[in-house]
Design a protein around this nucleic acid. Structure first.
Lengths: 336, 336
DNA sequence: TTGAAAGCGATACCAC
DNA sequence: GTGGTATCGCTTTCAA
């Protein structure tokens, strides 16, 4: 195993110079730096993780707690995990996985043993038990999601209420006076809080703009596609010609096929907006305007906040990411 | 931060006794052990991870490399990650995530820096680049999956060929002479090797038993359900009354609904076996005999092998897990 | 059955 | 701009 001593010897300098050359925490002359870098390269030197943790006060590891509930949407969840890992790595951090069954035990353990520099919390529930732990632990913690009680916490999330506002505004501006919201599964309105926040945003804005709303909870599209069809059919029967879809990709496809069966053209006869979807809506059979939920955005910001809090910057606060509207032509004036 | 010194002081012993009491590597009298345990408990002591890594030669961390390809089936993949994490934790190990973009770089880095005790490789491709790295690195590596060239490696996987044999045998024993295999997507037959192995097992056995086989590649069920329907319809038109399904849950459901539309009763008019599925086939609308792929099995064995290889046991070799048939009545004699 | 002390391999302070 | 060295907290001989 290559140690810093061997590198120092090969480069003809002391170990402290090697350390400083690598960390950049002290100026090193151009030539010695070059010699050191060469030695590092030819010897394939990589600082020992344990020694670095012990001597420095950084482990260069973040914990990621992810409670995999039965109703977790795997693709979305994976996108968040991946985005977090990539963002962390770019800042020189690795990700240590903390799964269920060890949620509280795991957080306490990694904190007490100084195994990680910070903890990132995924898939936050309204009454998340990890909130209490985050408050007792010394290790900086960043929530990707928003619990009901976020007092004193650092949280990052898409501004779902603003998503609701934005969606309604677009449809209202296009002249629609009746909107159907195809929502998530019933259970997700209880277990998570972002569906509620989006719904709330929508309700606020329809009230302000005098618009009629019908909100339909959808079942899991894969197991009960009939429920989604039924909701779509009823909406059309009611005369609704504007849809906000806050659901998985399958639900979008079902809606699109129902519209197609009725001979309705998206963007002409009927308006559709996909709200807070994290999959690529360009993959749908018909392009749909979208107000995307971008995992990379939330996760990069979360990692940034974690890093900054290690440097003493960053006071606890909630960071709501403003939504962005991406038009591709699925919304047009009503009745045109 | 609580250190081993404080624990030793509180218990009135030396730090070495504390260390031994906790590791159990040296006998400690009952009373002193009790005193130490009490001190540990009241002080909330947890050994410093960095110090432990440096002094001991174990980090108590396993790396898990998971290349998330575009065609990765998220739920299955998550099941494997989760199963690995749980199994590792039970043996006192945490999981460090190594994603794409850093596959080779990551493996080399964690190995060179002694960050992990072993590396677990998920989602193995036939010509996986991680095979070469595993051979150059000192860190013990266990593959969960089987690459084409597995010389000198430790691999764990379901015996997919045996799954093929078993499925054909059951159908043949029930008197079926014509079988349709609804397989995976085309791309997975190129990118992975377990679909090929299952197919091969099926082909071997139908040849041996003189049975006619039609193999259909299915598209992604969610985006091209029509392709799956078509394959099922053709099979019925051909007169096939026995199906082996090696695909995601959606494909199963489509087949079942086609059978239903034709007035065919599973287990009476037609035989269906689900091969190597990792989801719960009891959740399907009609119960189906299954030869399951159990992530927990592979992952637990893999973790076991990793742990054992640290103790110098376990020589490199391939571990194929024998398949198991679970009958629920979806297979019966042909033409009855 | 228990204790003293020598490392483990970095970081970062104190000198020069 | 560079070098010496105390230090981090634990594991593990070596001794008693």
């Amino acid at each position: 195993m290559t140690t810093i001593h061997e590198v120092a010897h090969a480069a003809g300098v002391s170990i402290s110079t090697v350390s400083y050359a690598l960390s950049g925490k002290r100026p090193v002359s151009e030539k010695t730096r070059k010699r050191i870098e060469d030695a590092v390269h030819t010897l394939g030197y990589e600082p020992d993780a344990g020694a670095r943790m012990l001597a420095g006060r950084r482990t260069h590891i973040f914990a990621l707690t992810e409670p995999l509930r039965a109703d977790t949407h795997a693709p979305t969840h994976m996108a968040f995990v991946l985005a977090t890992a990539v963002a962390a790595r770019r800042q020189g951090y690795d990700i240590l996985l903390l799964t269920d069954e060890q949620t509280s035990e795991g957080m306490n353990r990694v904190a007490a043993s100084n195994l990680v520099d910070a903890i990132l919390v995924l898939d936050v529930a309204p009454d998340d038990e990890r909130v209490a732990i985050a408050r007792t632990v010394r290790t900086p913690t960043v929530f990707i999601g928003l619990p009901d009680d976020s007092e004193g916490l650092t949280c990052v999330d898409l501004d779902f209420e603003a998503v609701g506002h934005l969606a309604v505004d677009r449809l209202a501006d296009a002249g629609h006076e009746r909107i159907t919201l195809l929502g998530q599964t019933e259970v997700s309105y209880r277990r998570s809080n972002f569906p509620r926040r989006l719904l709330h945003g929508v309700q606020e804005r329809i009230a302000a703009r005098g618009i009629a709303l019908t909100w339909s909870v959808t079942g899991a599209a894969s197991t009960e596609p009939a429920a989604v069809r039924a909701a779509a059919e009823e909406a059309l029967a009611r005369g609704d010609r504007a849809f906000i879809v806050h659901a998985v990709d399958d639900v979008h496809e079902i809606l699109l096929s129902v519209l197609d069966e009725h001979g309705l053209t998206v963007g002409a006869d009927v308006a559709v907006i996909s709200a807070a979807a994290s999959f690529d809506t360009a993959m749908l059979s018909v392009p749909i305007d979208t107000i995307p939920l971008i995992p990379q955005q939330s996760c990069e910001l979360a990692v940034d906040l974690a890093v900054r809090s290690l440097d003493g910057e960053a006071a606890p606060r909630i960071h709501l990411i403003p939504p962005e509207y991406r038009a591709v032509g699925s919304v047009s004036p009503a009745g045109d």
